[in-house]
Design a binder for these strands. Sequence first.
DNA 1: GGCATCACG
DNA 2: ACGTACGTGATGCCC
Length: 877
Amino acid sequence: MENKNKLLLIDGSSVAFRAFFALYQQIDRFIAPSGLHTNAIYGFHLMLTNLMERIQPTHVLIAFDAGKTTFRTAMFEDYKGGRSKTPDEFREQIPFIKEMIDKLGLAHYQLVDYEADDIIGTLDKMAEAPDVSFDVTIVTGDKDMIQLVDGNTTVEISKKGVAEFEAWTPEYLKDKMGLTPTQFIDLKALMGDASDNYPGVTKVGEKTALNLLHEWGSLEQLYDHVDELKKSKMKEHLIADRKMAFLSQKLATINVSSPIEIGLEDTIYRGPKVEELLAFYDEMGFAQFKQKLGGQLEKSGDDHPVAVKKVAYQVVVSADEIKVKPDDFFYLEILGGNYHKEEVIGFAWGNENEHFVSKNLSLLTAFDFPENTYDFKKNRVLLNRLGIKLPLAKFDAMLAKYLISTTEDNRISTISKLYADASLKSDEEIYGKGAKLAVPDDAELFGTLAQKIHTLAVSKEKMIAALEENEQLSLLTAMELPLSEVLAKMEITGIAVNKATLETIGRENETRLSALTEEIYALAGEEFNINSPKQLGVILFEKLNLPHGKKTKTGYSTAVDVLENLAVTSDVVAKILEYRQVSKVQSTYVKGLIPQIASDGKIHTRYVQDLTQTGRLSSVEPNLQNIPVRLNEGRKIRKAFIPSEHATLLSSDYSQVELRVLAHVAKDPNLIAAFKADADIHTSTAMRVFNIASANEVSANDRRQAKAVNFGISYGETEYGLAKRLGIPNKEAAEIISTYFERYPEVAHYIENTKREAKDKGYVSTMFNRRRKLLDINSRNFNIRNAAERQAINAPIQGSAGDILKIAMINLDRALETQHLNAKLLLQVHDEIILDVPNDELDQVKALVRETMEQAVELTVPLKVDENIGATWYEAK
DNA sequence: GGCATCACG
DNA sequence: ACGTACGTGATGCCC
């Protein structure tokens, strides 16, 4: 099924005028910081976004009148004469409307001697040519263009405000006036047009003109038989004004063969130029549009339908046809995301001009893989299953895009919108989603693959330029790319899991859950679904009348912190908490993990390398970065994770890495001193904040509070948050925080400077130039802005810490290789790595890991590593 | 598919 | 006066 192209043609001059008057009442509310009136600009934008949303065009052109004189004034001097002067407040906004149109990624055009109508009529005709055949919507403020309606063309005329339009189709025109589109011209010829200032026939208005046309069919027919009319004033006028009638007919006729210098290909909608648009909104003072654009991008990456476009390709069947250039791109396609399980459905390679596609996997065994790709890690893991080992790519477009901006996703369709011609359909459109996921026919599959190669090739230079501009090139080549190889190996290796252990835990849990269920039902006096927060809320807060704390959007909150307060006095709540704990372990970690054990007895997670806002990894299908550890109840799950034969699990984690990074980036002397002295950091903070002279006078409670402060600081925590966490009055929390900043003044400066930097530049950076954009940092909304400020404070800390472990992993992988050790990296959990170490390598590897992690980068404070070993992950902690 | 909940660093 | 920590993923419920 092929989508049809949709062309939206807008009479910019008339729509802008409409927009100006729609918001004229409130003109004084629409003033840019520069003093410029913006009501027409704002209204025009509103109209445009409404139209774009509703019509979803693939092509758009906004036509403007070029000037006062046109070929029509040459025919009739008074054409459009007698109009009152356009207000200055309106005229001055026109250039900005055009600028805005540019930045929205839309085309505009004007042509000397012609009106917007003529440009639109000409393009409309082009769009109806049989080989293109678009659906066309014309939007305007006056009725002249109704003559253009036909089976493919609808004319929408602005009725009221910025969103109400009357849609004219041939049927509607027939219904409403009993006319055909061509007759509409004759209508104007007879009745004239007051605003365009041509008279038509004296004393003939709409009513008379319609009657005449219904009777005679056309102006020509009417005049051919004008003598047959019975004697009347009207007949005299018709005869007297014959010349004017035919002149008016000419004036009313839109020129559909105007000498325009643009074509349909110039009107393809490729989406907004986001950065420029954001700056424009600032200039105009359009806060809501800015907000909305940011939000849209975060959500969906501005999904608009795109022009149907084909890229030529060559299907390669046999090995002797393969031609690969070293700087080609290579791309592998699978359905869905799980490359541990899914089969390759096709692959492609090539460059901007040549696109080769194939489904013949055997070709890959002797393939000369080119330097550039998209998602190297996926390729590496997939091809490993086919026994093919490919060399590390030099450029990975997915990772490059991620480094440039984390605001949108990094799909090729998004890359196409940002760096190419936006002509790529989303994978969802091609392959479907969920249950409807399917391989399309060869033509569509190959066409898509070819377009992907084309998009990647076209985008590469622009992405490299952006990386250079941001000084992020080495982040790609020396960090993310080598890491992708390390992660690929870890994913391929997988971690051995003892299914029987999980099953035993599962049986125990089932027994406990049934017992708990019975007890809860008895205490509640009825049966209900304990897993339903809604039903649970009714039981606890309506039936048992327990005091309810906070509410959620949908009802009472039954979250742990609420239930914990109630559990002190309520047996049933205590049981429910216990049930929840067991149930979580059972559903997510027993029932969830067992089916994830592959036929090799291992679990192979996938690390998502292009997702987080801070540069951390994430882990999916299954997530092995959130295996329980805090409560023994869940921690037992770790007993199922085991080393290979004659090996031991080694877990090495950075001690307080984020606080050390904070000490380093903030250059705080007191924090640095504490780490240099290898002091217990929470005790040290307690001493400074609570004025305690010696470490052994610090109580457990002092340390607990200091620990909360230490963590809270790097998240930008407020006094309210700290008070709640520690269960102390707000005032006391405020006191603690202000004392903290007195004792650690450079931390206070760091926080202020980071916020300042974020507000000035719109982004913050890690020690290694990883960026996080903060679109909301200058929001006028207190909450939104504060949230962005906290993100600004945290991102460089969390991100730098993440970068440090990435560096350590790369170095460790190399060291293991050069020292010919058989130990293998298995897992990464943000500040910790887990290795499978042959027993005879244990001492050496333990030292090597420690050394590599501690020396990954040199900070003003030492990095410290703790390690644990064990015969299961449970013990190695 | 959104929401609530809870697992991790 | 606002309304409360940063970053994730999986599950079950319910519309």
